Simulated scan of single mutants.
Amino acid sequence: MHPAEEPSSLRDAPRCGARTRSGVPCRSPAMPNGRCRMHGGASPGAPSGKNNGNYKHGQFTREAVEARRQMRALIAYLRAFLSH
């Protein structure tokens, strides 16, 4: 679509205005926060803990790591005890 044929609402939309790397203001249409989709600011990030879709099995939680550490220490102690 030729720029002159754009819907008037898009042509009349407020512009982002963030400075591009070349130093000129960005000419993309702004979202409600005042910046375009590329200059909209930091993402809030992924949810933490079990709300994150990445949580699978709990094998590397603090509790699981500590339990394995204690078990290894106990096994080492018993091996040393039995070797004497």
Rank of each mutant, 00 (worst) to 15 (best):
R35A: 10
N52S: 09
M71A: 13
E63G: 05
N52M: 09
S48N: 07
R69F: 11
F60P: 00
M1W: 08
S43Q: 04
E5I: 04
N54K: 08
A80D: 15
N33R: 06
A18Q: 12
P32A: 10
G40V: 05
R21W: 09
L78K: 14
N33F: 07
R35S: 07
D12I: 00
G40Y: 10
R62M: 04
R15H: 07
G34P: 07
R62C: 00
R15C: 03
S8H: 11
M1R: 02
R15Y: 09
N51K: 14
R72M: 05
E5N: 10
I75E: 10
K56R: 14
P25V: 02
R62I: 04
G17I: 08
G34S: 05
R19V: 06
L82T: 11
N51W: 11
R69I: 01
T20Y: 05
S28D: 13
R27G: 14
S22V: 10
L78V: 12
R68H: 06
R37F: 14
D12G: 01
A64N: 09
T61N: 06
G49V: 01
A67G: 02
A67Q: 14
H2Y: 12
R79W: 13
L10C: 00
C36A: 11
R72A: 13
L10N: 08
M31C: 07
A30D: 10
P29M: 01
R11E: 12
S48Q: 11
F60A: 00
L78A: 09
T20L: 07
G49A: 09
M31I: 07
M1T: 00
R19G: 08
I75H: 05
R37D: 03
R62V: 04
H2L: 08
A73V: 05
A42N: 10
S48T: 13
M1C: 09
P3V: 08
P47R: 04
G41C: 02
S48K: 14
A64I: 06
H39R: 03
L10K: 10
C36E: 09
A18M: 08
C36K: 03
R15M: 03
P47A: 10
R15F: 09
C16S: 02
A30H: 06
A30S: 06
G40M: 02
R79A: 10
A18H: 13
H39W: 05
L10T: 06
G41A: 07
M38I: 13
G34A: 09
R15Q: 06
A76S: 04
A4F: 11
G45L: 06
Q59W: 12
R19S: 15
N54I: 02
M31H: 13
R62G: 15
G58M: 00
C36W: 07
R37V: 12
M1Y: 04
R35E: 08
R69Y: 11
R62E: 15
P47I: 07
P3L: 00
C16D: 00
P29T: 10
G53C: 01
A30N: 03
H39N: 05
A30E: 11
A76R: 13
F81M: 10
P29G: 03
R37K: 15
E6P: 01
G41V: 05
H57G: 03
L74S: 12
Y77I: 11
N51E: 12
C36H: 02
L74W: 09
G17D: 03
S48A: 13
